[in-house]
């Protein structure tokens, strides 16, 4: 069997329209195989310039914003379409430098899919990044 790797979407759904940079960051900086787990000797500690994958930390600011949003809410109004929150993606997370180097010693194994469709699906664990938040 020989299969071609196609560089551009050939039919089907095509590229998702909503996949912006924030989505890409959440995926490729937070998921996927970590090379350090497989290779040590020839690893190149290249500096990766990136916005860190985002996590939610509830703070007093969040609470005050929620309260103000509720304050603006007109409860007598029956139904009104809210403003889609898509634009807010842009404001999330702060840009910062991050170096991903050769120093992490995290063991990595591939997830086994065998038996996953049994009633009890186990949820794969994610690597916990140290030293953040």
């Amino acid at each position: 069997m020989t299969t071609a790797v196609q560089p551009a979407g050939g039919g089907g759904l095509g590229r998702p329209s909503g996949g912006g940079l924030a989505d890409v960051i959440d995926t490729i900086l937070d998921k996927g195989l970590v090379i350090d787990a497989y290779v040590r000797v020839s690893l190149v500690g290249i500096e990766v310039l990136a916005i860190d994958a985002r996590i939610v930390v509830a703070s007093v600011d969040t609470y005050l914003q929620f309260a103000e949003a509720a304050n603006r809410l007109d409860l007598t109004q029956t139904e009104e379409q809210g403003i889609p929150g898509l634009m807010r993606d842009l404001q999330e997370g702060g840009a910062k430098y991050k170096t991903r180097g050769a120093i992490e010693g995290v063991g990595e194994k591939l997830r086994e899919f065998v038996g996953m469709d049994d009633a009890e699906r186990s949820v794969p664990r994610r690597r916990r990044r140290s030293g953040e938040e």
């Binding site: 998921k31 195989l33 970590v34 995290v106 063991g107 194994k109 997830r111 794969p124």
Partner: peptide, 8 residues
């Protein structure tokens, strides 16, 4: 991406 994982 979400189905290849790094256990601790």
């Amino acid at each position: 991406y979400d189905f290849v994982v790094t256990p601790s």
